[in-house]
């Protein structure tokens, strides 16, 4: 039950979406874009939400696309985690998505919603970072397509009124060998203690992390250490862990020391698998 009152709009084109945003914004309604809505509803119930209007993106044709266009896999931001999993066009992304929340909620969570929400895990971004995906963004200033590695810094860096419409992934990454691991405090259905996506590409292993710092990330510096085969496995991993882009989390899911222990063990087993 959400005590707050707001208006609800469900546009069907990118242009209408931007227009209605501008209009509502001009009226001072602090409009918010709405994807699967699972996070917004939870926040609304706890009265942690201030908005006068929601703009639901789920009926915009461009945001519903899930197909290959030439050599790119195009995934609309309104595509649900379940659709990604059931079609399995990008297995690493489907696996990462299939461990977010639970299966029923995956029927509701959209790719765009997970990427742009406030939750610190956003595990769907990990495969996208590894595969140098492109992000198609629409907004009042027009449309732009940018590399995710430049627009995702701790979180999606969007301008006012902008929203993610599509993600584009080069076909060559979709079939790269990969390993996805999510380790938790104890339960299967819960936030990650550590979630790691890795991919073996021609230049070596790529790795992206969630639950390690207060934001999801891929670190080139860490990848360089992990790929330094001149050192022992233990040294490679220890060096990499020293380079996390922020302090390692200590929270209800686990202490920093235990997280380190788990990350080391996971990286060890992942690298062994990928370098076999």
């Amino acid at each position: 039950m959400i005590p707050l009152n707001f208006e609800y709009y469900r546009p069907e084109t990118l242009a209408d979406t931007v227009d209605i945003f501008d209009k509502l914004d001009a009226e001072g309604k602090q409009p918010m874009y709405y994807g699967g809505g699972t996070e917004i509803i939870s926040m609304g119930r706890m009265s942690n939400l201030t908005t006068g209007a929601l703009i639901d993106l789920k009926e915009i044709a461009d945001c519903k696309v899930l197909e290959y266009q030439q050599e790119q896999l195009v995934i609309g931001s309104s595509v649900t985690l379940t659709q990604i999993h059931e079609t399995n066009l990008f297995p690493l992304l489907s696996q990462a998505g299939a461990r977010i929340a639970d299966h029923t909620i995956q029927n509701k969570i959209t790719l765009g919603g997970n990427l742009c929400g406030t939750i610190i895990y956003k595990e769907t971004v990990l495969p996208l970072l590894l595969s140098d995906s492109q992000v198609f963004i629409a907004g009042p200033g027009g449309q732009r397509t940018v590399p995710i590695n430049s627009v995702f810094k701790e979180r999606m860096q969007l301008g006012k009124g902008e929203f993610v419409a599509q993600i584009k992934v080069d076909k060559k990454y979709v079939s790269c060998p990969y390993v996805h691991v999510k380790q938790t405090k104890q339960d299967k259905i819960t936030y990650p203690l550590v979630s790691i996506c890795t991919m073996a590409v021609s230049g070596g292993i790529r790795a992206a992390f969630s639950g390690v710092c207060g934001f999801p990330f891929r670190s080139i510096a860490m990848e360089e250490e992990l790929n330094d085969r001149s050192r022992s496995m233990e040294q490679r991993i220890d060096k990499a862990i020293d380079l996390t882009p922020g302090p390692i989390l200590a929270d209800l899911e686990g202490s920093m020391e235990y997280r380190k222990f788990i990350i080391k063990g996971l990286l060890n087993s992942i690298i062994n698998q990928l370098e076999e």
């Binding site: 609800y8 469900r10 809505g37 509803i41 789920k58 379940t82 029923t104 909620i105 029927n107 509701k108």
Partner: peptide, 13 residues
């Protein structure tokens, strides 16, 4: 046809 938690869906949706 798909299971949905009706507490996480707005009626308007």
């Amino acid at each position: 046809g798909w299971p949905i938690k009706s507490c996480l869906m707005l009626a308007v949706e």
